[in-house]
């Protein structure tokens, strides 16, 4: 993604207008982090067994 494309993405989706280089750095980082999370989720996410609430874990510990 070019700097102009990254800047356009942030402008169009969030209304934030910033320098192209800064936008590209942000989008690049977001892509890298997202890829890590997607891989982690692929290995763990199930429809029925995901203990989706952190509050549940914490409440269990506090009980």
């Amino acid at each position: 993604m070019s700097e102009d494309e990254a800047a356009a993405l942030l402008r169009d989706t969030n209304g934030v207008t910033i320098d192209g280089a800064e936008a590209k750095a942000a989008v690049t980082l977001a892509k890298t982090v997202s890829a890590t999370i997607a891989a982690g989720a692929d290995a763990r996410m199930t429809l029925d067994e995901t203990p989706w609430s952190y509050d549940t874990l914490r409440a269990g510990a506090g009980a």
Binding site: A23, A26, L29
Partner: peptide, 10 residues
């Protein structure tokens, strides 16, 4: 700023 670019699914 990167927070503006993450997919909601992530």
């Amino acid at each position: 700023l990167p927070g503006l670019a993450y997919p909601a699914t992530r």
